[in-house]
Design a protein around this nucleic acid. Sequence first.
DNA 1: TGGGGCGGGAAAACCGGTTCAGTGATGGGA
DNA 2: TCCCATCACTGAACCGGTTTTCCCGCCCCA
Lengths: 341, 341
Amino acid sequence: MAGKRPTISDIAREAGVSTGAVSYALNNRPGVSESTRRRILEIAERLGWAPSSVARSLTGGRANAVGLVVDRPARVLGVEPYFMQLISGIQDALADGPTALLLQVTDDSAAELAAYRRWWAEGRVDGVLLVDLRTEDPRLTLVRELGMPAVVLGEPAAQDELPCVWTDDEAAVVEVLEYLVALGHRRIVRVAGPEEFVHTQTRSAAFTDAARRLGLEEARIVPADYSDEAAARVTRRVLTGGRAPTALVFDNDVMAISALGVAQELGIAVPERLSLVAWDDSSLCELVRPALSAVRRPIAERGAAAVGLLLEILSGGSPRKVKTSDPELVPRSSTGPATPR
Amino acid sequence: MAGKRPTISDIAREAGVSTGAVSYALNNRPGVSESTRRRILEIAERLGWAPSSVARSLTGGRANAVGLVVDRPARVLGVEPYFMQLISGIQDALADGPTALLLQVTDDSAAELAAYRRWWAEGRVDGVLLVDLRTEDPRLTLVRELGMPAVVLGEPAAQDELPCVWTDDEAAVVEVLEYLVALGHRRIVRVAGPEEFVHTQTRSAAFTDAARRLGLEEARIVPADYSDEAAARVTRRVLTGGRAPTALVFDNDVMAISALGVAQELGIAVPERLSLVAWDDSSLCELVRPALSAVRRPIAERGAAAVGLLLEILSGGSPRKVKTSDPELVPRSSTGPATPR
DNA sequence: TGGGGCGGGAAAACCGGTTCAGTGATGGGA
DNA sequence: TCCCATCACTGAACCGGTTTTCCCGCCCCA
């Protein structure tokens, strides 16, 4: 039985009052007597009434939804736990509020822009979350142009005033380097994610800084793109070249695992001859052998905080920059003392 | 400049016609002259008008959104590539249509039911996708009771008439078993996902059938729950017990990888002394060493087909059961000839 | 010259709520 | 006793579209 959904008019008719009165009663606003209110609530309950979110949005001007576009190729996306954890955190913050999450995944940054633009033009979202900020990111221009509320997940760029949720990655980079140095490593290579991401640059800058401060002249950065293939290629090249590093630090977990395979192929023992550190921790890191030492970031917390901030802004709060709890290095079996050669 | 979004009234005023005429013009319907239509379209273009999806839904009765609730603990969710691939396929089918995806993740099946119920009551979705069907699944009752259009991703249960998108898992089970038998394996253990899932039961039944047909008296099934811990526990027990199997077949990739670690711990060489087969293939399987032989299912295709079917039903098509392309076994390095002992 | 048909468009109802401006009844205070 | 507040509630406008109804003017044909 498909039974049409009841409307406030149905309730009004049944209760013998106007729809206005019903609206007041159902929203717990003054204007109706206590007895009438109870009668109306009871009828609404009996009829199984729920407010049409569409109709409410039309008057309220709020869509009661926030949007997130994830722009990564499906292949990478599937494997990287990052986004699912993020979404999971987002949901926590959204749970039993009236707000829903609109999700789009794409592998085309033009489509990403178009999605945000369309959502806004059609009034489908009240605001959006932006992840993986790039330098000169066109999305920043877009949200400014549209006046669309947005929260950035990532480093606070000094120049712009967008609210954001950020994690102190720099401190973590330093922690990792100090840890490796304490283990005796001097030749350390950072295998970075795509350079166009702001967070990649932040970490790279922090890496270079810390390396200089620690006097690591042979520390260096090689670019990759988060994919297992690129990581394998880069790792192979780095390990077989002259003056091979004794420690590698990766920008995500997938690349680190890929490198583990390469090391095994090349007969390089981990952690005896080579130490590996992954960035985002996930159960993948615990799954492989040796288990990977990794930097654990509060990913779900980031998602939840971002939504919280966005909702706050939507209800009139002022934009601000929120810092999450700090990342921590979780040492496992893929890191060990450097063997002098 | 937040600039209010233009409405058809703005266009009507500017063009000196009624809003009705504007509506006809913008929707390419007869009722306005060609010249007026062009004028209106030009004004709309200039004003940057886009239809309010909310207002349209109110009249059209369509929300232009479909809902998906994923009910898995965040820990498992993050690692399993399945859902992201599914979502990616869903998006492909949704791309540049007017329909959006509402996503909810939860780890509580009561919350899942509540989400579907609320989405429907509030008119936020036109229909939903159901994944991970259980026996006696309360969602089936719910969608029937609500008259909410739904498409099931999974086996077609004979008794009910819900449209579904299914993949011939049974054939794949047979293929895997025959493959292992051809390699000389006789003692084969299937490490299954949660028993309450219909697809687990289907595969288990197919496994038992095929094993009998092939005369494998020592083939058996042990239950697990998709998590790496459970898989590790089960694998350890199975491998250290008497009459240890020479081949293990897992219901997902995470469990297979976990087992790989356990085998390594126990000093059991893969594939020399133990063969492993994962179910859903993903780049995780290629990442680990030895790379895992796996059954590759057309996951994204499933998602796309499900959305296609749902949209078809929403526009009046009759429910039907769609079969995707067949899964295929991708042999890699984790399977090899059985060593007689 | 008058009637019928048709095309272009205006006007208004409608979708399901919210909200504002009234209105009649009641009560309290002077 | 009169007047003003207050309360409880109604009617109507409104949000931004869609759709139905209706009307006007034109052309065609008898």
